[in-house]
Design a protein around this nucleic acid. Sequence first.
DNA 1: CTGCAGGCCGGCG
DNA 2: CGCCGGCCTGCA
Length: 285
Amino acid sequence: MNEVKFNTVKDFELAHIFECGQCFRWKKEIDGSYTGVIKQGVLNVKKENDILVVKGVVDGDLRNICEKYFDLMTDYGEIKRVLCEKDEHMKRASEYGYGIRILNQDSWEMLISFIISAANNIPRISKTIENISKAYGKKVTYEDTTYYLFPTPEELSVATVEDLRTLNLGFRDKYIKEATRMVVDKEVDLETISQMSTKDARKELMKIPGVGGKVADCILLFSMQKMDSFPVDTWIKKVMSELYVDSTNITKIGEYAYAKFGIYAGIAQQYLFYYKRSEGKNTEK
DNA sequence: CTGCAGGCCGGCG
DNA sequence: CGCCGGCCTGCA
């Protein structure tokens, strides 16, 4: 086990980072810290004032892994300033979701996770990702608890469509199977795609079954550092048609967002998503 | 018991 | 092309 500290970490709020919809494998502990499984292992993070404390078992250098994963080298204060100047809505949303950061997650895991997200709900998405990891991923022990890494493409490729169906993937099983095959057979190379322009990368990703515009945008934003991609899901559709565009056409909304928020459209999306979702949670209960 | 959840796909007009 | 029903499954 390892531990590292990052001093004077600004614009970093655990709850907002893990609950703004970008990740599925982080859980809050009773002491207020969060534990999650990432590509290289298991992490536990907590904030003590402005010090970020990370413990974990990982394959690689913990400090380097954290810097990249939590996007610690990016100045979110500056991004927020730019977005705040756009208008009052963005000002409010970014103040509400202060401390949100876009995690640099693994593109393969994001591909499968967001294929699963289609017409699904968050508890079930998390559960099926957990099922897949348990069935095909490597075991990691941290603090006497067993965790399972998300399987590699090769590890997952041994699963048949029938196997996948038993993991509660529903109709998405065949998409997962084919997507996995394409990656293993190198018909798609996620690393190469990540080097392309946002537009070209999006087009390439959409060649994978189960990947439409929204899923592609999530992969681009959450694992390929394409901060200008703007995933339009049902929540964003609601906010955008309420606040900005007189249309529910997904393509139009996306185009409008990029025109308005530019290279940080993706961050704007996270603020709006988190803002709108919490509003829903407050009024429903 | 319908309806629907962080969409995508395929068929039809 | 744009539109719309169907799709696994579980929960309100």
